[in-house]
Nucleic acid binder design. Sequence first.
DNA 1: ACCATATATTCGACTAAGTCGACTATATGG
DNA 2: CCATATAGTCGACTTAGTCGAATATATGGT
Lengths: 108, 108
Amino acid sequence: MPVRLGELEQLVLLALLRLGHQAYGVTVQQEIAARAGRDLSFATIYTTLGRLESKGLIAARLGEATAERGGRRKTHYTVSRDGRAAVKDSLRALRTMTAGLGAAWELS
Amino acid sequence: MPVRLGELEQLVLLALLRLGHQAYGVTVQQEIAARAGRDLSFATIYTTLGRLESKGLIAARLGEATAERGGRRKTHYTVSRDGRAAVKDSLRALRTMTAGLGAAWELS
DNA sequence: ACCATATATTCGACTAAGTCGACTATATGG
DNA sequence: CCATATAGTCGACTTAGTCGAATATATGGT
């Protein structure tokens, strides 16, 4: 059974894909604010990352301490095979639902 | 403040746009099953339609009794101005999040 | 008139997802 | 060794998603 994504889960997954190596809590928050125009709290972002991880859609790894000013170490995330499949499924559904509606709606 | 759509709300709105005049509970359920591949109960569909209506994103009107076999009258739905705007916003966010990710992800 | 039955919608209950304010943890430079 | 910058966690609550079962209502046949 295909995993269902909530709309924020979908955005977070896409942000991770966009960010690649530098994907972690803070950058995800920023990417979603900058691109999707949604200024979410860090708590919201981390809650969602946690949920995605427990569903097996992303994997977390603790980063090394950097040479910068200070602060806790980052937790980096990568999208798993299942995560990629889930995103593709949700995008495919959107494509078939928007197909033929005209330029104003069309997504592909 | 722009209205936020859940992922099912988004699908239901798109189904209504696709169906036009013949949009009502049963056809919405069928359209989503056929296109998005999600076989949802009618209760789920009607719950969502109700939520969308109370948010002012769709409008309901009771239809006339038809000449067919029997049964209760249909409640037809149309997407309001705000509903259209909400769908466009959510699709726009998706486009900017998928832009530049490559053919496998791209939505427009 | 009545009622069987096809068709359409609603109820009640619960699980999952989204959201944030406030708090905790931890590197580093002075 | 501690002030402070940076990253992540907790607890609590609201909103969205979901369905089995029940309800409502036209019509055709008798």
